Amino acid sequence: MLAMAYGHVYVARIAMGANDQQTLRAILEAEAYDGPSLIIAYSHCIAHGIDMRKGLEQQKLAVQTGYWPLYRYNPALLAEGKNPLLMDSKEPTLPLERYIYNEARYRMLLQSNEERAGQLLQLAQKDVQESWSRYRQMETES
């Protein structure tokens, strides 16, 4: 089960631009957790080749496409008989290309080898869908 994967570590994945309330909740829970905590935060940077003024919008797109699902894994919930994994993202609502082609690192391949870029996009979209399904399955396990 997921508890064995993470042990007794609080783990959260956040993106402030997508959900600032979830970000705050995760930080507060991590601080309150009696044990080690790990917060994995989406951090846009200039190397992504985006207009940095639109960084928070890009974070939101990453979540909406399913590329960056938001969750909290709180082992303290095990003591209450609850599943420690809480998905804070909604199902992906946008195709992955809406997110990735905003970034120069992905557009470069599209410009240099459109066919290969299309193949990789299909594989990446499939990976997003499979990952999302795994997270949802883990969330419903008790």
Rank of each mutant, 00 (worst) to 15 (best):
A3S: 10
Y6N: 06
G7T: 01
V9D: 08
V11T: 02
A12H: 03
R13H: 06
A15C: 05
A15M: 09
A18E: 03
A26G: 02
I27F: 15
L28C: 10
L28H: 10
E29G: 02
A32P: 01
L38V: 15
A41W: 07
A41I: 08
Y42L: 13
Y42V: 08
C45F: 09
G49E: 06
G49T: 04
I50E: 04
D51V: 05
Q58P: 05
K60P: 01
V63D: 01
T65F: 02
G66F: 04
G66S: 02
Y71L: 11
R72A: 04
A76D: 12
E80Y: 01
K82V: 03
N83T: 04
P84G: 00
P84V: 00
S89L: 06
P92I: 00
P92A: 06
P92K: 04
P95F: 09
P95H: 08
P95Q: 06
E97H: 08
E97G: 02
Y101T: 03
Y106P: 03
L110D: 00
S112Q: 11
N113S: 05
E115H: 08
E115G: 03
R116T: 00
R116I: 09
A117T: 01
G118E: 07
D127R: 15
V128P: 00
S131C: 13
S133N: 14
Y135V: 01
R136Q: 14
E139A: 15
E139I: 00
T140L: 13
S142G: 12
